[in-house]
Amino acid sequence: MRRAVSTAVLTTAGVVVLLSLKPHHSTVLLSVPPVPGASSPGRAAGPPRDGTFTGAAVRTPYGPVRVAAVVRGGRLVAVRVIQVPSGTGRDQQIAGYAVPRLAREAIGADSARIDAVSGASYTSQGYIDSLQSALDRADG
């Protein structure tokens, strides 16, 4: 019995130590391929052209994210998802709740300057970066 307790305590302590040694902020290191004509984040002066603009494919640890921005009347009216990580059930589940939220926020903000959805930090960051590159293209 005593050994069972000490094993449980040791295991728990070990797991907690391992977890606590990891960084506790999102360290998203994404590589965004340079997009021709890409400018600083945010919208350039002047309304963007209408049309559908495909963003860059942004690599995340779970797979690439790529979206297209649909611009009508100078405003972002829709974001189409071309590619999100979907290799596993978890990926699909994350995409299932994160993507609609991100789209809603981006359309509401009319930009890619939106917050990441918690629990989907990689996918959010990939989404934001890809959308930004699409909007840059619309501006360009």
Partner: peptide, 26 residues
């Protein structure tokens, strides 16, 4: 096996990160 988790995990963020990480190790 623990090393595998270590190499593969870049960060543990928030309560969900802690629970998921601990669950993964277990």
């Amino acid at each position: 096996v623990l090393g595998l988790w270590w190499v593969d995990t870049s960060s543990v963020v928030g309560a969900s990160g802690w629970f998921t990480g601990a669950g993964r190790i277990c």
